[in-house]
Design a binder for these strands. Structure first.
Lengths: 244, 244
DNA sequence: TCCGCCAACCTGACATGTCAAGTTGCTTTT
DNA sequence: AAAAGCAACTTGACATGTCAGGTTGGCGGA
């Protein structure tokens, strides 16, 4: 931070110029940015350099690019927020029909290493996955993957391709007398995989907030895992608490 | 997710190939990846394509690149974790001498728009900034910026270039009878700015976890703001709580 | 008037090539 | 044997150019 000794890198020069124009309103929200060719001319750099600057702007969520049209300045980040003290608790309870959720898949697949580890099943084992995207009017805002050990799924409606009309946790409690005792919630920031990027309509490699919540029974064993991926530029978790 | 219809994109082909080789141990941790030129030959693509794949791997924290040497496979993410229920509380209380903190600056600067808004001061106003990096043996892991309205700083040791030996909050309480009532904590995931990337030794645009904590007095006014930026691939916030 | 076609733009995904700067290891000189 | 020097390799940061595919608006025919 401090003072920038010099803008030696060309793409940074372009990046900073565009960024300040967006912030001071020269390029208002919704506006179309100059085309790459125009920027090439104005800054006297090559197109890849312009592309690099635009890529970073896109990654920061400041612009949005449409093939064949151009790059638009995005509106001031609405910073969709959450209130509940434990955002993960919401995930465990979530009823898919509450919000506009679109089921992507519901079936038995090989659990990725990370999931297998957390669910305490051998690597390479299959598990049940129920995956859906949640959208608001602005587009997709959350990719949720709910994982369960196979023995939990039999006799429940989890494998049905229809949205669950009651919360997952209540559903399991009703059918299997499964009682969750406590949850472990992990919050991390990582790059979107190309797959996630496609589903969420963001850039591959763009930052996402990743909540991984495991529900444990009283013996301490993980019985359920919910993984939520939220585009970083559209989400902010907020929490208010008293100071001693 | 689901099945990838086809790896039509060349950089994705390379990316996935390298990723699975890293995961199945073909390229063990600490190993040097084949050079860009070798990859060009092997996958029969151009260097920019290889570079794009490597860039994404770097962004996901799977590799680390050194100019003139090559790309190394990073060790299994140690996922440095935190325990306290409110990670932000730690920030407000933090004593800089606890951990190996290096003070970057301590002085009066113009507050960025976001800081000004949260601290409830007019845009463009100056505020006091105390900024430092915290490292462990593996390198820098946290960039902390503590902001205060100017009237709070007079008569305290905050402007001293030496590390504070007591927590910020205790220090303020002792000198100014400042009593914080509650905190608002925001957690978000965003792309590292080039400046932050330099300080933290990561890629510009790489995902970072950003904690923004404001301390409020009993009238509800923000009196202190602490902004912590953590490299996404080295941090994970963990929280355990009972389920009703 | 309305519809369909096409030219003009625009971005995406590459290929090729250049130059600078950092690393490494071997060779040559002292 | 130790030190200095250089060649070979590697990444970073560009420039230039090509082709495919999406978008848009205008023009001409039905």
């Amino acid at each position: 931070m401090a003072k920038r000794e010099e803008d030696t890198l060309k793409y940074e020069r372009v990046l900073n110029a565009l960024k300040s124009r967006i912030q001071d309103g020269t390029y208002a929200a919704g506006t179309l940015l100059p085309s790459q060719h125009q920027l090439v001319t104005e800054f006297d750099v090559s197109r890849p350099t312009v592309i690099e600057a635009l890529r970073l702007l896109r990654q920061e969520g400041l612009i949005e690019t449409q093939t064949g049209r151009g790059s638009f300045v995005r509106g001031k980040v609405p910073a969709i927020t959450e209130q509940r003290s434990y955002p993960g608790q919401r995930l465990l309870d979530e009823s898919e029909s509450d919000s506009s959720a679109e089921l992507l898949q519901a079936g038995i697949v090989v659990a990725p290493l990370k999931v297998a580890t957390l669910l305490e099943i051998p690597p390479g084992t299959k598990a049940f996955l129920r995956q859906y995207v949640i959208s608001d009017q602005g587009g997709p805002i959350e990719l949720v993957s709910a994982w369960f050990p196979l023995d939990l799924v039999a006799g429940t409606k989890l494998s049905s391709p229809e949205p669950l009309d009651e919360g997952i946790r209540r559903h399991l409690y009703g059918r299997k007398r499964l009682r969750l005792d406590h949850a472990v919630e992990r919050t991390l920031s990582r790059a979107a995989t190309p797959d996630e990027a496609t589903v969420l309509g963001i850039e591959a490699g763009a930052p996402v907030l990743n909540l991984v919540v495991t529900g444990h029974d009283s013996a301490g064993h993980a019985r359920q895992l919910v993984d939520a991926v939220l585009p970083g530029d559209r989400h902010e978790l907020r929490d208010v608490y008293p100071l001693s």
